[in-house]
Nucleic acid binder design. Structure first.
Ligand code: MN
Ligand code: MN
Ligand code: MN
Ligand code: MN
Lengths: 225, 225
DNA sequence: AATTATTTTTAGATAAGCCTAAATTCTTAT
DNA sequence: ATAAGAATTTAGGCTTATCTAAAAATAATT
């Protein structure tokens, strides 16, 4: 049932997965190259190979998308990545900005038994430390509504359920301001000039975030009561 | 301080480590090739490379041993392997015959922080599920006396503290007979004809083991009381 | 519609890790 | 001491995953 892919092939599948996820049109060679920090020529080579294996549907010069089988494998990889990130934070006490690089390695360890036992050990988590959904063993996501903090109006309350980017600089900034998944965020005011927002965190500390930052914070609105 | 080696280079270091451990003389090309299921020619290639990096001391046609730095890296690898095996058994509920292959992959994940946190999470175990000593962060082993069951006399009691081989067939055989690390083993009688031994396990079940099997079971003698 | 710019593919190389077969060196037996 | 045998190294190739530079195709501009 399961084909054995190299870690490199898996990384390409994941790159295409991410690209397909965030744009609906076919993933371009350059997009994939940028994501993997490799050359366009290398991407073309790999697309031929993955196409040969029926893991992607590749149209020369026009882009690529995952086949059903490719999608299944990419989802399994995302599952492993997010389970390992959860393990690193929940069990080993890592902070959310430290786990991505380690999970990038752990996700390529081959053993279905291992993934399933890890899932059980973590008590079948639905979301990873960054708030991203963890696919179940049969590839199903538990989705939840997430809107950008920038879309809230003054006076509205919300809970942080996700972040758009996972880079260390951004997450460190959030740490410094005691912002992490689960905190409540109340919109106090918005600047008409630069759209920056004054936010009350956990009904305690007040901070000022730029419009750009607010776009990268994904929240669930709380019904006023 | 830490050089970045490929998984392949690490595996060669470990092979040399094992060979050096079990023979005192230099490791031969063929021994390493057999251990890694590769060709002698490939071993020679790699010895040149590792020698260049000062990780091994290699004498053409005469054999190879680890340098001090090579030894340090090999020990770190053994540490990772055995910590992961312990994790798989203690935390994920794997059986001791299932963990080796997975640990072979996990041991190559690069992150010192990860290893140290794993060690802490497991509460600094001294021995892995096969009874082998786990080196500490500074490379020290906690050794303990281990003699083969075949060397005991009739009437002597002992506790199983290790096994000489880790292959699935052998471990499965032990499982079937409820033999695992920590069980008590009493010598009931020995055959003069084929040296097979009647053993009482956990003061409960009685089994007959061949001389060959008894040589592969490492025990600690219990002082009679 | 034609030209220019951008993107993508192809061509040709390189490095790691592996192989088989041939040459070399070491070991053992006569 | 020499020849036969075994072990090891070298030579030459192969595959995967890279790269740069050149060629081809598509997209954008005038
Ligand atoms: Mn991640
Ligand atoms: Mn994540
Ligand atoms: Mn092992
Ligand atoms: Mn072990």
């Amino acid at each position: 049932m399961d084909i054995d892919l190299t870690a490199t092939e898996e990384n390409y599948l994941k790159a295409i997965y991410k690209a397909n996820e965030s744009s609906s049109s076919l993933a371009s060679t350059n997009t994939i190259a940028r994501y993997l920090s490799t050359s366009a020529a290398s991407v073309t080579d790999m697309m031929k190979k993955l196409s040969q294996k029926n893991l992607v549907i590749y149209q020369k010069y026009h882009g690529v998308k995952l086949s059903q089988e490719g999608s299944r494998l990419a989802t399994a990889l995302v599952r492993k990545h997010r389970l390992w990130e959860t393990f690193l934070v929940e069990k080993l006490g890592f902070s959310w900005e430290e786990v991505h690089d380690i999970a990038e390695q752990l996700e390529h360890v081959r053993s279905n038994e291992l993934v399933d036992r890890l899932d059980q050990f973590l008590d079948y988590p639905k979301y990873d430390p960054h708030g991203d959904p963890i696919p179940s063993a049969d590839g199903k996501f538990t989705l939840r509504e997430r809107i950008a903090l920038s879309n809230l109006s003054i006076g509205e309350s919300s809970i942080l359920v996700g972040v758009k980017h996972h880079d260390k600089v951004f997450l460190d900034y959030l740490n410094q301001n005691r912002i992490n998944i689960g905190v409540t965020m109340n919109i106090l005011s918005k600047s008409l000039y630069d759209h920056s927002i004054r936010v009350l965190i956990e009904n305690e500390t007040e901070i000022l975030v730029t419009d750009e930052t607010a776009k990268n914070l994904l929240v669930r609105k709380l019904s006023a009561d």
